[in-house]
Measured scan of single mutants.
Amino acid sequence: QKPVSAYALFFRDTQAAIKGQNPNATFGEVSKIVASMWDSLGEEQKQVYKRKTEAAKKEYLKALAAYR
């Protein structure tokens, strides 16, 4: 399975908490809140997710090379 983006990892980590705080929110509303949070996130915090994405990408490429 291809690795997901840094934003997708952040979304996955954040979505449940947002939904818990806003139980009646639609998926679209939750998405807007998470997107706003991502935009206001500091670069250092974004780097945490970007590093996770890079590590997953390297593992994916290694597994793909081994498969071929």
Rank of each mutant, 00 (worst) to 15 (best):
E43R: 06
T53V: 14
P3A: 07
A55Q: 12
A55N: 12
E54S: 07
Y67F: 09
A66Q: 14
A8Q: 14
K57F: 06
A65L: 11
A25V: 10
V34M: 03
Y60D: 14
A17C: 05
Y60K: 14
Q47P: 01
R12V: 03
N24L: 05
W38F: 01
K58E: 13
Q1Y: 14
M37K: 13
R68I: 02
A25M: 07
L41P: 01
R68T: 12
T53P: 05
V30R: 04
A17S: 09
R12Q: 11
L9E: 15
F27D: 14
M37I: 04
G28Y: 03
N24M: 10
Q21K: 13
K32P: 00
A63P: 14
Y60E: 14
A16I: 10
F10T: 02
K62F: 03
A6S: 10
S5R: 04
A56I: 08
A65H: 10
W38R: 00
A63Q: 14
T26Y: 00
G20R: 14
E54I: 12
L64G: 15
G28R: 14
D13Y: 02
Q47N: 14
A8M: 15
S31V: 05
E59D: 13
A65V: 11
T53A: 14
F10H: 14
A65R: 11
K19I: 07
A8H: 14
E54L: 09
S40A: 12
K2Y: 12
T26R: 06
T14W: 04
A55D: 09
L61H: 14
L9F: 05
S5A: 05
Q1P: 04
P23Y: 00
A25G: 01
K57P: 08
V4A: 07
A63N: 14
E59Q: 07
A17G: 07
I18L: 04
Q21G: 05
R12A: 09
K2F: 10
K46P: 00
A17M: 08
A66C: 11
A35W: 08
R51G: 11
F11R: 08
V4R: 09
A17F: 10
E44R: 04
S36G: 12
A25I: 09
S40E: 12
A55K: 13
S5Y: 01
E29A: 05
E44N: 09
R68Q: 11
A35E: 12
E59M: 03
K19D: 00
Y7G: 05
E29D: 07
S31K: 14
L64I: 15
S40M: 08
S36W: 02
K62D: 12
